[in-house]
Simulated scan of single mutants.
Amino acid sequence: MNKKQLILKAFEDVDADMLDLLLNDGQSYQDVHKETFVTELKSYFEDLRNNRDYKTDFKAVQGMCTNCNKGKKGYSFVNSEGESFTSMVFEESDDDYTDIYKCSSFKTFDREITEEWIGIHFYEEDKVNYLPTELHIRQQKESDRAVKALEMEIKAEGILSKNFYVPWVSTYRHLHSIGDIFTDKSYRYKNEVSGYLWILEPLAEVLEKSNLARELWQEFIAFPLIDRETIQDWLIRADYHFPYYKFATEYKADYQQDLFITGGIKIRLSEHWYLQNIAVILNKCSDWIPDYNPLKEADNYAASEDDEDMFPF
């Protein structure tokens, strides 16, 4: 087997150690140094081997890019169930590959892919030509400061209270945006703080409705009889103000310890007590909630009328 065939076989065998030997030192692949490229593959391949739900009998199936690098040829590595762990363009010379990079618009020539997995990913800081701007440097320092403050609070207190995480979210929420998902650029320094914000930002936002939750709870416990006809109007209003709560919370509450755990972080339960009760009621009575909430429909109708006023054509 020549070198190119050995490289393809190493991908088929999910053998990153062999790729470490075969790929060229000092060369970049997918715009990152060879060492970074192989390290990411090692982690990915290890996950593949340890996941018993997947068959790892991968074979290289030839194809080409249909978009950004249209016409460039490469291979998708597909198992016997038609699942591909990645599709990559292989730019080549006579006896070697001059570059290897992931392709998200890949079309195989003679084999249909039933499922394409995410594959490897690199951050902007990993790239060989990365030059941080003043904004990047400032955001990196902010991200480090945010993570350090949060983890020191968790270490000192063992649990997070709203007095800490509500202002923390307010201070650092600009470091995390849902729009980041739809950009080609992601930064490692924002990864950890974004993970914490994914967990804490929704909790901080829902606490703004604590007073409303308390009012609804007080109204609920005043009902002399709990049946569908008696409380349906209440359920409609509660579902309107707290959408998705009827599906229950993702965490389990420990009332004795006054905490619940989400994303591995302990949160003070008593500060969410009324909100937790609303979630329990909506979940237990979810069959009594109409599929189409009339209050939400009224909002949609009002919004459509506003659109017609703005664009009367």
Rank of each mutant, 00 (worst) to 15 (best):
K9A: 07
E12V: 02
D13M: 10
V14L: 04
D15P: 07
L22A: 07
S28C: 04
Y29V: 08
D31W: 01
H33G: 12
V38S: 00
T39N: 06
L41E: 05
S43M: 07
S43F: 05
E46Q: 14
E46K: 12
D47G: 07
D47S: 08
N50D: 11
N50Q: 14
D53R: 06
K55S: 10
K59G: 02
Q62G: 06
M64W: 00
C65M: 06
C65R: 01
N67R: 01
C68S: 07
G71H: 01
G71W: 02
Y75L: 05
Y75V: 03
F85H: 14
S87N: 08
S87G: 06
M88F: 13
F90C: 04
E91L: 06
E91Y: 01
E91F: 02
D96Y: 10
T98C: 03
T98G: 05
T98F: 03
I100R: 00
K102I: 11
K102G: 06
S105R: 04
T108H: 05
D110M: 05
E115C: 02
E115G: 01
E115R: 14
G119F: 08
G119Q: 11
V128I: 15
Y130E: 14
L131Y: 00
P132T: 13
T133F: 05
H136F: 04
I137P: 00
Q139W: 00
K141S: 14
E142R: 08
E142A: 04
R145W: 08
A149P: 02
L150W: 09
I159C: 14
S161R: 11
K162I: 04
P167G: 09
P167R: 06
P167K: 04
V169I: 08
S170K: 10
H174I: 07
H174M: 07
L175R: 11
I178A: 15
F182C: 09
S186C: 02
R188E: 02
R188P: 01
V193M: 06
W198L: 15
I199T: 15
L200E: 10
L203P: 02
A204Q: 07
A204E: 05
E205K: 12
V206Q: 09
V206C: 02
V206A: 06
E208P: 00
K209G: 01
K209V: 07
N211S: 11
L212V: 15
E215V: 05
L216K: 14
L216D: 08
W217I: 09
E219N: 13
F220K: 08
A222V: 10
L225G: 06
L225C: 11
I226A: 10
D227W: 03
Q232D: 07
W234A: 06
D239R: 12
Y240W: 13
F242P: 03
Y244H: 13
K246I: 01
A248R: 14
Y251F: 07
A253R: 09
Q257M: 09
D258Q: 08
L259N: 09
F260Y: 11
F260G: 01
I261W: 06
T262C: 04
S270W: 00
Q276L: 02
I278C: 09
I281F: 03
P290E: 07
L295T: 11
L295H: 10
Y301R: 13
A302D: 11
E305M: 12
D306L: 11
D309A: 10
P312K: 01
